[in-house]
Structures are given as C-alpha cells and as structure tokens.
Design a protein around this nucleic acid. Structure first.
Lengths: 333, 333
DNA sequence: ACGCTTGAGGTAAGCGCTTTCCTAGACCGT
DNA sequence: ACGGTCTAGGAAAGCGCTTACCTCAAGCGT
C-alpha cells in the first residue's frame, strides 16, 4: 500500500505539496514538482485512501440508498433514476437491500450513518406497525441531527423530504376501470398486509367500489408477497375458491403476471386481470397487461434531487399521480 | 456528531475503555462502567465513524461489485447471489454500474480500491479490444498488489479467481437445437461486437453450424445491444430483409423477448425464436421462450465465495455449463 | 539599501478511532 | 508484612490524509 508519504518521499517533496498536486488544489505549484509527483504516483501505483480522505476533510459525499430488493424490477427502475442523478453529481451511491425486514433497514440506516453519507434515500413501502415506524424514524432523526439529509419514496411517516406516488388514487383507478367495464365480482391479490403500499392501494380500490356500489368483501382479498410466484399461487386459489369472480386486481405487476400464468394453466380465458406499476414486462406477456403506471425512474430522480438539493426548513413533499394504461388483459364483463 | 471522546467524557472513562466496551473487545471491563458507557451511547445517539474505524484498524471488510447494470435482470440475478453470500459473511457490498463503459469500470476499480474493499467482483462480459482489457488488468493488478482479492464472472482475460459460464458451449447448444429441428436458414441477433460474451456465444453457434453443415453467413448476424428494444428493432429488420429465415437465435433473453414482440406486430407465426440466459421472464411470454440456461444466482454465489475465500497462489477457475431449456417458442421447421 | 509584500513550499495539528504499552491498585503465598 | 503476580483502566501513538499556518526567499518601491 503506497501512501501519500511514500509518494512525497519518492518525489522529494512534502506530503502537503503532494496532496495539493494530486487533488488539484487551488494553490499554485511549480511545474517541475508537479511532474515529479505525478510520475511518482504512476510509478508507485498510488491510490489515495478514501477513508483517510473522508476523515481528514470531514465533509460527506457518498449517498446511501435503501430499497427492499434491487433485483425486483420495481426497485430496479427506481434505483436507475436514483443512480442517474447521483452519479451525474459525482457521488458514490451505496445500495442496501432491506428485503422488507425492518431490522435490516434499521441496521442499514446506522451503517450508512456510520459511513458518513451525505444523504439516505429510502424507497419502498413503509411499515404499518406504528412501533416499527417509530423505531425507524428515531434512527433517521439521529442521522438527520448530524446534518444528514433524508428523502423517502412512497412512505409518508418519516422526517425528511418525500416523493409520494399516489397509491390510493392508483388503486382507485384500477377499481374504476374494472367497475366501469361491468365487473362486479372481483378478487384482489394484495401484498403483505403490514405494508403501507398494500393498505393504500387497497383503500383506493375500496373507495372505487363504494363509489360504484360494488361490494368488496374481506374474503375476496387475498394476501400474497408481491412476487410473481406468490401471485400465481393466490390466483390459483381464487380460481378454485371463487368461480363467480370475473376479474382479478393484482396490487403489482409481478403478481399480475403470476395470475396470468395461473389462468393459463387452468385454461381459463374469461377472467380479466389488472396489474399495478406498469413494469416493462407488462407489454410482453400475453395478453398484454392493463396496469396502473407509476413513473418509477422519475420517482427515483426526483427523490435523489431532493436529497442532494439544499436543505430547507420544512421538509418538501412531492406528490406523483398514477395513470391507467389499458392493454389487453381487461375487457367488459 | 457525537464522537467516541464525547461518549467517554459523558461516562467518565477514557476513550480506550469506551472503545473496548462498544466493540465488545475481549478485555474484561467492570459492569458498572459498561452500563455507564452504554447509557452514554444511547443518550448521545452515538454512531461510530466507519471511516475512522477503517483507518485505525487497517483491515478491509467491505467488498465491491462491478456489473454492467443491476437493473438488467441478468445482473440482478447474479447480484442477488453475490449479496447473499457477502451479507451472510457480514460484509457491506458496494455495487457499481459500469454501463458497459470501460472507462467507468476503470474509475470504479480505483474507487473501490480507494475505499479499501477486501475484494472486487466484476461480472459481465469483458472487452475484446486488447488495449482496453490490458488497461483494466493493469488497475486490477495494482489493487491485487495491495492485498485485495479479485473474482470475475464471465471474463477470462484478468488476473484473479474466475467463474466462467461456458458461453461457447451454450451457443453450441442453441445452434444444435435449431439445426436438429431442421432449421437451415437462421438469423442471429447478437450483442455488441466488442464484448467477449457476444464473441463466445457466436462462436458456439458457428461450431454447431459447421457440425451440422449449415452455413451461417456474416449478413445473417445482426448486432443489437442486448436490450429488449434493440432486439425488437433488429428482429423487425430480419423479418423485412430475410423472408426465408425460419428461426432467430437471440444471444440473450431480453432481445429474444423483443424478437417475439416484433413477430407479434408483424403477425408472423412461423419464425421460431431461441433465447439465452433463461431469465424468469422466459416462462411468462407467449410463446414461452426456449432458452439456454445459465445458473446466474449460483454464478454470483460461487464468485463471491471465491472472493471471500482464502487467497491461493494460483488463481482458481470454475467452469459452469449451460443447459438447454426447451419451451414453446421453437418447433421443427 | 531597506522594509514590505508576495508566493512557493514545508510543518504539524488534527479528523475519530483502535490498540499497544504502561500504571497502579488488588490480591496472593509465605 | 512483603515481594510478586494479576488485572482493570488509562495514556498515547499511530492509521493516511488535509489544511491552517508558518517560513524563507525573491521581487518591489522608495
């Protein structure tokens, strides 16, 4: 491990001069020295120790991102947006997967805090349980108290700036679409019941049901885990349990795709399916999936912009509307 | 920012004692002190500065991962495997997207080096251009020279341990499948020509063609960019240019899905399509996609295991075979 | 020729932590 | 009671860098 001192010695200058040359400080330096130092850097294959740098100039630069799972396309899209604006700003982004476990999320908040990140962006559903939310918020506040910035995507219970997709309105859109097509017997494949996203989307659906005078009994709400396979399994159960159902509203596209698969294996061609999120795959399944679009990449970009922007007294909140995208998987009853 | 010194002062002990208590050092400490220190930690919401820790105990722990793009399902799968074993080992993993730009890759190698990661794992096709490969290898060696470990997935031109999916054999499998089904006029939708993955898979395809006495002229090889839309565009061009083609071999699933879409819009139901990678989506498109499976998650797991394992004199190389998965998108001519 | 400014470069004090080494009191056997 | 052995806890030396401050010499005007 060549150190700055090695380079300086090699070039016959002080570490101060070497540091100034390497970092392109504003202080003027003779060209002869500059050349010597740069040559020493190349020869020794010197790479500065980022930890020492961070410690010495105590200003934060990296940003941390906590998502449920980057390999889930939903978060992949959001992350893409986050990365774009972060790297455009020359920042290292550290991505952490919480896998929907509050404890892991807690751990990562502290870890990012320890790593002196400038900001933490948390994307993905929050936790309905107030105790859990409070615990998270507590750690977040501790981070904020040290001057860190916070931005959240899609959860409203925390301190800091927020970008909020309107899940409730999106749920309403999904319900309205199905009900105006004449479906009265619908089943819902929801996500885990402890997530706010599930609750919000469901609420929108119920609002729509109320408006259109349709009843949406508890037993018609099946909880899966937001994965494709979970959706397939639940859809199969719906098909078995409730033969009168004519449409399934899945609360995300992965589960909707699973539902389509269940329909395919059962040979059933009469049940309509609507998804949520409008992920790229929606175009490529057959029938192509009607869905409620959330501008995921944009969500990420805006959240990162908030996180990197100047701090403001009162947290900024941006709302983002959902939008219905009609394709071939829904039809009149 | 509460520091260790603050905590120590607050608890009326030295920083040495505080550090020992907080890190659970082996040195015994009186319970009274322990309680006081822990109380101070809680009260001051103390979070240790990871940079200072790294600097003081100069041992590396985090690991860095460089992939082309995590939000690409191919890398998402690999990354999942990498993360699983890294976090099981209690390590922070830093993920960097190179977006297939060698310069960015170079930059990230240095950045990870600077951050004193214990190991760097690079996944994804290498670059055919020898100068580019050499430049990368040079930086990698510099990292290795400082005691860092390196593991690569799917590129053979570098120092360090490697997990190598057999792309050539996979290409052969794809070709053999098509040729034994009787297809003689096939078109290939390849990836970017400067990537080794493209070259290897293509080579396998050509080996198969030679074995089965089929000719595969240059003009039947279309280069796209490994994305779905690129695949769709090229497939459309194939359909327009070469009406006699009865099968398309796409060199990854994303492009195969695009090809399926092109077929759908053109109303063509006679051209067979085979993909490569067997990503989850392959099951869910219609017709479901015949593909060549690479055990991506396992690839990631094994690479990370190599990276975290004990260093050995001579780099270890593990080969992983590809496997044909036949579904509905291919049929006899 | 003198004092002053100016500018290039060096000196050294941290940044926040870990850990080696040391101290001083407690405890032991005789 | 005394020397010797433990042991709990503290002092302080770094880890590799940045940067405020200082030095010294050259260049200036008068």
């Amino acid at each position: 491990m060549a150190t700055l001192a090695d380079v300086a010695r090699h070039a016959g200058v002080s570490t101060a001069t070497a540091s100034r040359i390497i970092n392109g400080s504003s202080k003027p330096v003779a060209d002869a020295l500059r050349t010597r130092v740069l040559a020493a850097v190349a020869e020794l294959k010197y790479v500065p120790n980022a930890h020492a740098q961070m410690l010495a100039r105590s200003h934060r630069s990296a940003v941390g991102v906590i998502v449920h799972d980057v390999s889930d396309p939903y978060f992949a899209e959001i992350t893409r947006g986050l990365q774009r604006v972060a790297t455009a700003d020359g920042r290292l982004v550290i991505i952490c997967n919480s896998f929907r476990e509050p404890d892991r999320e807690l751990e990562y908040i502290d870890l990012l805090h320890a790593h002196q990140v400038a900001a933490i962006v948390i994307a993905g559903s929050g936790y309905l349980d107030p105790a859990t939310a409070a615990r998270l918020d507590d750690r977040l506040r501790a981070f904020e108290a040290t001057g860190g910035r916070i931005a959240v995507i899609g959860r409203h219970e925390h301190t800091g700036d927020a970008v909020l997709p309107d899940n409730e309105q999106g749920g309403f859109l999904a319900g309205e679409h199905l009900f105006t097509l004449g479906h009265t017997e619908i089943a819902v494949i929801a996500g885990p019941s402890y997530l706010t996203t599930t609750a919000d989307r469901l609420k929108g659906l119920q609002n729509a049901a109320r408006k259109y005078g349709i009843k949406l009994p508890k037993k018609r709400i099946y909880h899966a885990d937001f994965t494709r396979d979970g959706g397939e399994e639940m859809a199969a159960r719906v098909l078995a349990d409730e033969p009168e159902v004519t449409a399934i509203a899945a609360l995300n596209d992965s589960m909707a795709v699973g539902a389509l698969a269940a329909l395919r294996t059962s040979g059933d061609r009469r049940v309509a399916v609507i998804g949520f999120d409008d992920m790229p795959i929606a175009r490529d399944v057959t029938p192509s999936l009607t869905s409620v679009r959330l501008p995921l990449t944009a969500l990420g970009e805006r959240a990162m912009a908030l996180a990197l922007g100047a701090a403001v007294e009162s947290p900024r909140v941006e709302h983002v509307e959902a939008e219905l995208v009609v394709r071939q998987s829904t039809w009149p009853r």
